[in-house]
Design a binder for these strands. Structure first.
Length: 477
RNA sequence: GCCCCUUUAGCUCAGCUGGUUAGAGCGCCGGACUGUUAAUCCGUAGGUCCAAGGUUCAAGUCCUUGAAGGGGCGCCA
């Protein structure tokens, strides 16, 4: 079964009549003669030419969209115009038929909604093939980026016994009989007989554990599944998503921003090089999609947008600067914002982020030094006593792509902050110990991997860039 | 969780101020075709107009409720 050549490799060879075997799925069959065969290795189909004089009638009838087959024959320069080479089949072996009457995918454009409903087959379309190849390249590039810079890949727990991460609603995990939940005398759930003998959840972030690693290995990163039980119904949220969380010791917020910016530029450069054909396809797709939109609603052409990320430095402004820009902006003065910008300390809404990124600066913007009231307990207090050393990277079309901060390394300050925000200090001693023993300035950030894939592919719904999306009311497969 | 929109053939959609037998393109099926590129040409079949209730002489079309899907907002990555 191993004697096959993947189409991506064939395309790099010179066709001179060599005998090759390809294995893949039929996309279309034209003129009873031309099979467009795709094996998933590339978006490009290989044209397999069959001789209908010699090919048995029953085989000919079974070459239908979606059918799996093995074709062996000579690879020659194509006599047609649409492709450089083609395979003249001497032998066709169909390994799996596909009933054309019931196969949902037709050789035509389908809506993303329809393909979402047929999620088990959408991998076989050009669009989703491209998306998931790009997703792979991005994941690989992230590992490569960190590895090449001396970072260690640290696996933080998926099942967590810590409920103080404060990043959102958690999924509870238990083996208790839900029809007969044991209770303690005071009426609470008795976890003493549960699998872990305590309350456990699916992780919402590996950051706190990553900090433990960074305080010994210096530079670490996590890249794993993350879960949020929020009832979020948007095109940018999932209940199960993948997050990248580097953590760097002896570093401050500037180092953190540099790391994030360099990483984004590196991985986007990597896909521009290694996922060129897929990106070109997605770019054309986006262009067609937006043909009917009025000019001012169209997004920037995909490839130029990605090249711009590499060529341009990100804009860096403080929350206070952003606040002033927004307060004095035209839409704010004309009352166009649903949330007027009036009081320092307010959280920035989507409409504000979009104004800054898409109208004002027209490139990624890093906003730093947020008011302490709207940020997490572990972020380092600035000298003004009002803001923390936090940073969010906002990008066009997505909004928040990265959220990070310098961590509070001073035990007394951290202690006070935790008290202030009602974080259970007793349960967090393991975390505080990093500040008790050999504390140092350190920083890190979280990158929503699917949001990165959204940004790079130009797709607009996050459910289309993860193979098996989980969201409120839906956990198919 | 809140707001808006959509639901008509396998898919993508049209269907006017309510009025005869609900249409198109593509797909499927049948036929033609040896250089096609989502092939092309000819032909046939294919409908619980999302569901329930209501208004009306008459409802795909109007109203109410519900379901499913999409978009926006909030929560965030």
């Amino acid at each position: 079964m191993n004697k096959k050549t993947r189409i991506t490799r064939l395309l790099k060879s010179t066709p001179d009549g060599q005998i090759v075997t390809v294995k893949g799925w039929v996309r279309t069959f034209r003129n009873n003669q031309f099979i467009a065969l795709n094996d998933g290795s590339t978006i490009v189909n290989l044209q397999v030419v069959v001789d209908r004089e010699t090919l048995p009638e029953d085989i000919l009838k079974r070459i239908t969209p979606g059918a799996a087959l093995i074709a062996t024959g000579k690879l020659i320069e194509s006599q047609g115009h649409g492709q450089a080479m083609e395979l003249v089949a001497a032998e066709i072996l169909i390994t799996g038929d596909s009933n054309a009457d019931t196969y949902p995918l037709q050789p035509k454009r389908h809506s993303l909604e329809f393909l979402r409903k047929n999620g088990h087959l959408r991998f076989r379309t050009q669009t989703f093939g491209a998306i998931f190849r790009i997703r792979h390249h991005l994941a690989y590039a992230i590992h490569k980026f960190f590895n090449d810079r001396g970072f260690f890949y640290l696996n933080t727990p998926i099942i967590t016994g810590s409920d103080a991460e404060g990043a959102g609603e958690m999924f509870r995990l238990t083996t208790l009989d839900l029809n007969n939940v044991p209770k303690t005398d005071d009426g609470h759930v008795d976890y003493s007989n549960d699998f872990f003998a305590k309350e456990t959840n699916l992780t919402v972030s590996g950051q706190l554990e990553a900090e433990l690693g960074a305080m010994a290995l210096s530079n670490v990163y996590t890249f794993g599944p993350t879960f949020r039980a929020e009832n979020s119904n948007t095109t940018r949220h999932l209940a199960e998503f993948w997050m990248v969380e580097p953590e760097i010791a002896f570093s401050d917020l500037d180092d953190d921003m540099d790391l994030a910016e360099n990483m984004l530029q590196y991985v986007i450069g990597y896909v521009l090089e290694h996922g060129k054909l897929d990106l070109e396809f997605l770019a054309k797709r986006l262009e067609n999609e937006e043909k009917n939109k009025p000019q001012n609603e169209r997004s920037f052409p995909l490839l130029e947008k990605l090249q711009g990320i590499i060529d341009d430095k990100f804009e860096r402004i403080t929350y206070t600067e952003a606040f002033n820009i927004l307060r004095n902006s035209k839409p704010n003065k004309k009352g166009k914002f649903a949330y007027p910008v009036e009081e320092w300390g307010m959280d920035l809404q989507s409409e504000h982020e979009r104004f800054l990124v898409e109208k004002k600066f027209k490139k990624p913007v890093i906003i730093t030094d947020y008011p302490k009231g709207i940020k997490a307990f572990y972020m380092r207090m600035n000298d003004d006593g009002k803001t923390v050393a936090a940073m969010d990277i906002l990008v066009p079309g997505i909004g928040e792509l990265v959220g990070g901060s310098q961590r509070e390394e001073r035990l007394d300050v951290l202690h006070d902050r935790m008290k202030e925000m009602n974080i259970p200090i007793e349960e967090m001693q393991w975390y505080l110990d990093t500040r008790v023993y050999g504390s140092c300035p350190h920083a890190g950030f979280g990158l929503g991997f699917e949001r990165l894939v959204l940004f790079v592919t130009g797709m607009t719904n996050i459910r289309d860039v993860i193979p098996f999306p989980r969201f409120p009311g839906s956990a198919e497969f």
